Amino acid sequence: MSIQHFRVALIPFFAAFCLPVFAHPETLVKVKDAEDQLGARVGYIELDLNSGKILESFRPEERFPMMSTFKVLLCGAVLSRVDAGQEQLGRRIHYSQNDLVEYSPVTEKHLTDGMTVRELCSAAITMSDNTAANLLLTTIGGPKELTAFLHNMGDHVTRLDRWEPELNEAIPNDERDTTMPAAMATTLRKLLTGELLTLASRQQLIDWMEADKVAGPLLRSALPAGWFIADKSGAGERGSRGIIAALGPDGKPSRIVVIYTTGSQATMDERNRQIAEIGASLIKHW
């Protein structure tokens, strides 16, 4: 067993022997301040990774656009098919120029040779490549099948209805392509620590998230040296922004954090800054 596999296998073990965790309302004060600064709703939840206990939450059962955070769930569904012998990570998928959609920095470079399922998941999570996500959605049967996968996990809230990039439209009061912070946090925890996926697939999923290259201005910008984070960000229309993450000190994750916002007129930089400040408060009061 590799060191990384050992780390993920012992996530519940280490967490069980940690000192009790206590909620700190100071972080919620910052979440509410972010709402004021952005002029928009902000949803927040913080779960203990081992027990699933909610440590703090704000608007945990209000719907927010998922945006690209759905790509972690998508690759979880792909990995479940791999575990069941219905898919192979090494299978190569070929596609054409007509398949390319807006923001496809990886797939646009491989029109000639195609990409493997493993490479597509890596591109979808680490670079948020939209064509990679659409190609992977095709392998599982489309958005409705991802929703069905989530329902089978016990998540009857999260739903995907459309493809990239239309799913980022974020129309107010439109339930399409949305989740709730509580539902997303619980589902992410199941994917990373539950028995739904094999140990190898859980490790692969967290490795992809740990290698995320496009979430630097968010929670990662607030992390002290030595902290662990595996995350996936999302951005959408109407001032929408979000991030889902597993993080913790001492090089291992111990909490799940989900943050979503929508309806702001603020710039992307300002949305990023507010999420980073929430992260800084979380870490300060850990």
Rank of each mutant, 00 (worst) to 15 (best):
R238T: 09
A200L: 10
V29W: 15
T139C: 09
V72G: 03
D177G: 03
K53L: 13
N50E: 14
L191K: 01
K190L: 10
P224I: 03
L137E: 04
S68P: 00
E87H: 04
I275F: 14
S233D: 00
L192M: 15
D36W: 15
N173R: 13
L47P: 00
F22P: 05
S68F: 00
L19D: 10
M127E: 14
P253Q: 08
P181N: 01
M115F: 04
P224M: 04
P20S: 08
L192T: 07
T126L: 08
D129C: 01
S264E: 04
L247I: 11
R255Y: 02
L89K: 04
Q88L: 11
H5A: 09
H285C: 11
S2H: 15
P65L: 03
R255K: 12
L160D: 02
Q203T: 12
S264D: 04
L247V: 11
N50V: 12
T107A: 10
R92Q: 09
L247K: 05
T138N: 15
R81M: 08
A15D: 02
R91H: 10
E237T: 11
S104G: 06
P217T: 11
E166H: 10
R238K: 13
R118A: 15
A280Q: 15
P65Q: 03
E119F: 02
G142P: 02
G242A: 10
N152L: 10
R41T: 10
N173Y: 12
G142T: 07
R271G: 08
T69I: 04
T261N: 03
G263H: 07
R255T: 05
L150F: 10
R176E: 07
H94G: 10
S80F: 12
G141S: 07
D269T: 11
M1T: 01
V42F: 14
S80Q: 12
T179L: 01
T267M: 11
L100R: 04
T147D: 09
G142A: 04
L150N: 05
E56L: 08
V101Y: 08
L223D: 01
K53Q: 12
R59W: 04
I229D: 01
S2I: 15
I243M: 06
G90I: 11
I206L: 13
G234I: 00
D129R: 00
E210I: 14
E102D: 15
N272V: 04
A246C: 12
K144G: 15
G194D: 13
A222P: 09
L28K: 09
G39M: 10
A40V: 06
I45D: 02
V257N: 01
A185Y: 00
T267S: 13
L55I: 13
V8G: 08
M153S: 13
R41Q: 10
E164Y: 04
R271V: 10
Y103P: 07
S221K: 13
R7K: 10
F22K: 09
L219P: 04
I93G: 02
T158S: 12
L136G: 02
G242K: 00
F58S: 09
N168C: 06
A34R: 02
E56G: 12
P224K: 07
A77H: 10
E270M: 13
V257Q: 01
G43R: 00
E87F: 08
A246W: 06
I54G: 04
A16P: 09
L49T: 08
M268D: 06
T187Q: 05
T139Y: 07
A182P: 06
R81E: 07
T187F: 06
S201Q: 06
Q274G: 09
L223T: 13
T262C: 10
E210F: 10
T261S: 09
P217V: 11
V157G: 10
I243R: 00
F14W: 07
I45W: 01
P165K: 08
R81N: 13
T178D: 02
I278R: 00
P60M: 13
D113A: 10
A183M: 10
A215D: 02
T138R: 15
P12K: 08
I45L: 13
L79F: 04
V21C: 15
R91L: 05
R271W: 03
R63V: 07
D36A: 15
A34L: 08
A245W: 01
N130M: 01
L120K: 00
N173L: 14
E108V: 13
K284A: 13
S281T: 13
L137N: 04
E61S: 12
K144N: 14
E56K: 11
S2C: 10
I206S: 12
G76S: 12
L160H: 06
K284P: 03
A15Y: 15
A280N: 13
L188K: 00
H94Y: 15
I244G: 02
L196E: 13
K71E: 00
W286K: 02
A170G: 13
T158M: 03
G242I: 00
T131L: 06
V29N: 15
A15H: 08
E210R: 10
C121Q: 02
D33P: 01
V101W: 06
V31P: 01
D48L: 04
L120M: 11
T147W: 04
L111I: 13
D36N: 13
V214W: 05
A84C: 11
S96Q: 13
A148R: 14
T116I: 06
Y260F: 15
G242T: 02
H24A: 15
A170S: 12
A148T: 14
F64L: 02
F228V: 07
V117D: 00
E108T: 09
E46V: 08
F6Y: 10
S80V: 11
Y260R: 00
T187R: 01
P65K: 04
E164F: 00
P181A: 07
V8P: 11
I171R: 12
L100C: 06
L74H: 00
N272E: 06
Q97R: 15
E270W: 07
D231P: 04
R91T: 08
Q204R: 10
L191S: 03
C75N: 02
E56I: 05
T139F: 06
K30Y: 06
P143S: 06
A276R: 13
G242N: 03
E277L: 12
N152F: 12
N98T: 15
G236I: 02
Q265T: 12
I140C: 06
I3R: 09
A124P: 00
S233F: 01
L135G: 02
M67P: 00
I244Q: 01
R7H: 13
R118K: 11
V82Y: 07
L38A: 07
A15I: 14
C18P: 05
A222C: 15
I11A: 11
A222V: 14
Q4W: 08
D231A: 06
S128G: 02
A185C: 07
M268Q: 08
H24R: 13
T112W: 15
L135A: 06
R255S: 03
R159L: 05
A133S: 11
F6N: 09
L100H: 04
L38E: 06
L146Y: 06
V42C: 08
L192W: 08
G43S: 06
Q204F: 07
F14P: 02
A40Q: 09
E61R: 13
S104H: 06
A246F: 11
T198I: 06
I125C: 08
A183L: 07
E166N: 13
L137W: 03
L74P: 01
G251T: 09
L49R: 03
L188G: 04
T193W: 10
L191R: 00
I206W: 13
D129W: 00
I229K: 02
D174W: 02
S221F: 09
R41Y: 11
P143H: 08
L191V: 09
G90Q: 11
I259C: 07
L120F: 04
L218S: 03
L10F: 10
P253T: 08
G85L: 08
D83P: 02
N173I: 09
P105Y: 05
H5V: 08
R255A: 04
A15M: 15
T198G: 12
V117C: 04
L49C: 08
M180S: 15
E277I: 13
S2G: 08
P217R: 09
A170H: 09
Q265A: 15
E169S: 15
L282W: 02
N98M: 11
S254C: 14
L120W: 00
T179V: 02
L191F: 12
L191G: 01
W163P: 09
L219M: 09
P172G: 10
I54R: 10
I256T: 03
E237K: 13
A132S: 08
L74A: 06
Q265E: 15
T147P: 03
R41L: 09
E35H: 02
L223S: 06
Y44I: 08
